[in-house]
């Protein structure tokens, strides 16, 4: 599947060229920045769970984030584009929506949404990641996307380390879309705390409908936390609309995916004391 020119050129200019033109890059097989790719996967990136704010041996924190984007981000963007194309058959449904991307990495789902919705549709994006280095690079990619014409000029992009830090402003009734992409693969995530933060954020955003898209690798060790997460979401008033495990073939690569869509369509009942 061909991606938009702006997305391809953004990846080239902000991710591929900085890596391939780095003085440490030898272009030897099975290496990157002069290091064995196996070591890069397991230590520098750590399957996406590394501490991206810490340098590691000869790699700076920014190097580690760049390598994550180089090796992991493209396939994650492809998976999310696949999902959003199903959800956004009418891109106008996204208009004015609030997107909360928890474990956002470098603006991954923001890029996927922009690719599907086009630059005529604006939304407000809140990226949440515990890594400041990831957030900083995500901000760079968002600015690059807007400069390249991939984002509406009315789309706003902001990054935070926690949903508890976000001031969502005046409540609104448009869609809220929460994205949890590969977040539950991390062993440090407490599902109940996560759901509390999600529900609290949604309640502050406003009374409109909410959709939460969960994606993860389908490897058993990565999905251990899912049952507790599903229970907590159901207890919180969400309906699990669909759950599935599939093997996707995207750009010649096999992706074993576990995904689910939770919705809260009816709007939160508002206690009369709040009127």
């Amino acid at each position: 599947m061909a991606r938009s020119q702006w997305l391809e050129s953004l990846r080239q200019s902000h991710i591929v060229d900085p890596v391939m033109n780095d003085p440490r890059e030898t272009r030897q097989p099975n290496t990157r920045l002069g290091l064995p790719t196996q070591w890069v996967f397991s230590k520098a990136i750590g399957g996406g769970q590394a501490n991206f704010d810490e340098p590691l041996e000869m790699l700076s924190a920014k190097d580690r984030v760049l390598l994550y984007a180089f090796f992991n981000q493209k396939s994650h963007v492809n998976e999310l584009v696949h999902a959003f194309e199903k959800l956004l058959t009418n891109p106008r449904d996204l208009s004015g929506a609030t997107v909360v991307d928890i474990g956002c990495g470098p603006f991954t789902s923001g890029l996927a949404l922009a690719e599907v919705a086009g630059n005529a549709t604006h939304f407000r994006y809140f990226g949440v990641d515990t890594s400041q280095t990831m957030c900083a690079f995500g901000k760079q990619l968002a600015e690059g996307a807007e400069a390249a014409g991939g984002l509406s000029s009315k789309t706003t992009v902001r990054f935070f380390s926690s949903t508890d830090d976000i001031d969502f402003g005046t409540p609104r009734s448009t869609w809220t879309i929460v994205v949890l992409s590969y977040l539950l693969a991390s062993k440090s995530i407490d599902a109940e705390v996560l759901v509390r933060q999600v529900v609290d954020a949604c309640n502050r955003i406003g009374p409109g409908p909410v959709a939460l898209l969960y994606t993860n690798t389908s490897r058993p060790e990565a999905t251990e936390a899912y049952p507790a997460f599903q229970n907590a979401m159901t207890e919180a008033g969400f309906t699990m609309k669909i759950e599935g495990k599939e093997v996707l073939y995207l750009e010649g690569k096999e992706r074993k995916l576990h995904y689910a869509l939770f919705v809260r369509l009816g709007g939160r009942e508002i206690p009369l004391g709040e009127f």
């Binding site: 999902a83 058959t89 009418n90 449904d93 409908p209 869509l261 919705v263 009816g266 709007g267």
Partner: peptide, 17 residues
């Protein structure tokens, strides 16, 4: 992935309550 569209979900929203 088998996912409904937001348009379909919005139609459902009307009937929820």
């Amino acid at each position: 992935m088998r996912l409904p569209s937001f348009t379909e979900l919005t139609d459902e929203q009307k009937k929820v309550f």
